[in-house]
Design a protein around this nucleic acid. Structure first.
Lengths: 132, 132
DNA sequence: GATGGACCCTGTAGTCGCTATAGGGTCAAG
DNA sequence: CTTGACCCTATAGCGACTACAGGGTCCATC
């Protein structure tokens, strides 16, 4: 080969499945790589860096749209950083809202979980509690 | 009409959109109701109760599969309540896992949010922090 | 040089839980 | 009799992948 990684190697290097990499290519998050004589995708370090960025942003819960926006900004380095920061702050607020919601949920589920006395479904307080 | 609710009335009574009710019917969560002469769905109290149950369980984050399982159990009142309790405990654990993940995320995003100094993207630490 | 197995290719359909649209039919009030 | 609010079906779309099906390529071993 010509010094490039196969899709599988890139996948291992970045913790991404080949299917996901092809998906990112299809939706324009990753550029189309060169191909070998046998039509295999061939990736270099720049692809690995971009994909690592995407994966980390996704792990932080950024939707692909936000990732796309950040990549577009990163590709134009002479613009102010504020837009990137705004995306992070939005995401932080969204995460805080989700945590608050889930904590309310947890309290409710704990209440429910203590209502089962091990009897029959017909006496089950859990189902009662959800029914009215 | 013949004493039944229309889909819109049931929707208002339970806080559910008509589309969602039809969807629940299509996937077997709700039974097919009777129809009026004009082919409108006609619902009674039993439908309202069942749909309320579904909505509350969904609000608590139970996946539709779990809701389906609980409904099947509720329809067989002579079985032990333990299976219902197990579903609740599973869901509680899933919620706790999600909260833990989101809290790690929040810490990371807070770290990120303090790195933007308002300069240009080329000096942006946020993008750096997410690149390999 | 033939064979096996691990990898790669494309394209399509499925997942979850709805939501939205298109293109029509029904019903009650004015 | 017309208007407008509601209802019907069927289909496609969302996000972010995942899972086939049906092939092709590469490399090592016999």
């Amino acid at each position: 080969m010509d010094g490039g990684m196969t899709i599988g190697a890139l996948g291992k290097a970045t913790g991404t499945k080949p299917e996901t990499i092809r998906f990112y290519e299809k939706v324009g998050i990753l550029p189309q790589p060169e191909r070998t004589a046998g039509n295999y995708r061939s990736y270099g370090e720049a692809h690995a860096a971009r994909l690592s960025f995407v994966r980390k942003a996704r792990e932080l819960g950024f939707p692909l749209e936000a990732v796309r926006a950040m990549l577009a900004l990163a590709d134009q380095p002479n613009r102010p950083c504020g837009e990137v920061d705004a995306l992070v702050v939005d995401q932080l607020q969204a995460v805080e809202r989700k945590i608050a919601d889930l904590e309310r949920l947890r309290a409710e589920l704990e209440r429910l979980a203590h209502q089962c006395r091990g009897g029959l479904v017909s006496e089950c307080r859990i189902i009662e509690a959800l029914s009215p």
